[in-house]
Amino acid sequence: MRHMIRGRQLSRDTEHRKALRRNLAQSLFEHGKIRTTLPKAKEVRAFVEKLITLARQNNLNNRRRVIQLMQDRRLVDDEQEFTGQTVIQKLFDEIGPAFADRAGGYTRIIKTSDFRIGDGGDIVVLQLITVDAAPTGTARRTAGLRRKRNERRRLFASRSLKKTDAKPEAAAEAKAEPQA
């Protein structure tokens, strides 16, 4: 029985699960949104909500509690240069005050139509509410596996036919130009 056992196992041992949760939370605070699977997003969401609740009040005790739960790492810019700021500093200086008047629900999970090729895992976007971004992907259709494969084959065949039809015309135009 699983009485009073909380959280998802995610097919990992305890240390790996904690590290995964910590790294995903740091990436979410750094970038504002991350792409991951649905079970991981649900697990990280609860962890992130608790951290943001602590970061709303910027005092030493809350800062120490957040550092205890999540090791700190330095932030980098687009060129992979260090910005001089850490994830904890960004959490307490920018993200926490942004949610000061909000009672909860700091993140949203947006389901996309993408899935992993290897195991078919659902890919979702986990983002902070402050980041206003349109959902990526299209609405998911509930087509059977055979129908999906057949659609992909038809799309691939039509694309390859268009490419082969375009090549002889381009070759004929190329031959006609040097003669003129």
Rank of each mutant, 00 (worst) to 15 (best):
R21V: 04
R21G: 01
R21K: 15
R21H: 08
R21E: 05
R22F: 10
N23I: 05
N23A: 06
N23W: 04
N23M: 10
L24Y: 01
L24K: 02
L24W: 02
L24S: 00
A25P: 00
A25E: 03
A25I: 00
Q26K: 11
Q26I: 09
Q26S: 11
Q26V: 08
Q26D: 08
S27F: 09
S27K: 11
L28C: 07
L28P: 02
F29E: 00
H31W: 11
H31P: 00
G32A: 07
G32T: 12
G32S: 09
G32R: 06
K33V: 06
K33R: 13
K33F: 13
I34K: 02
I34F: 02
I34W: 00
R35Q: 13
R35I: 13
R35V: 10
R35E: 14
T36K: 04
T36I: 04
T36Y: 01
T37D: 05
L38K: 07
L38E: 08
P39Y: 07
P39Q: 07
P39L: 07
P39I: 02
K40D: 05
K40G: 03
K40S: 04
A41E: 00
A41I: 03
A41P: 02
A41T: 00
A41W: 02
A41Y: 00
A41N: 05
K42Y: 06
K42W: 02
K42F: 03
K42L: 09
E43Q: 10
E43G: 02
V44H: 01
R45A: 12
R45G: 08
R45C: 10
R45H: 12
R45S: 14
A46H: 12
A46M: 13
A46V: 14
F47S: 01
F47K: 02
V48I: 11
V48W: 03
E49T: 09
E49R: 02
E49V: 08
K50Q: 15
K50V: 14
L51S: 01
L51K: 01
I52E: 02
I52Y: 06
T53A: 13
L54D: 08
A55Y: 01
A55I: 04
R56D: 07
R56N: 08
Q57F: 13
N58S: 11
N58Q: 14
N58R: 08
N58H: 09
N58P: 06
N59D: 14
L60Y: 12
L60V: 10
L60C: 12
L60I: 06
N61G: 11
N61K: 14
N62A: 09
N62H: 12
N62K: 09
R63E: 09
R64C: 14
R64T: 12
R64L: 15
R64Y: 10
R65A: 14
V66G: 00
V66C: 05
V66F: 07
I67T: 15
I67H: 12
I67N: 14
I67P: 03
Q68A: 15
Q68F: 15
L69T: 06
L69Q: 14
L69C: 13
L69Y: 14
L69P: 03
M70T: 08
M70I: 11
Q71A: 15
Q71L: 15
D72Q: 12
D72T: 13
R73W: 10
R73P: 03
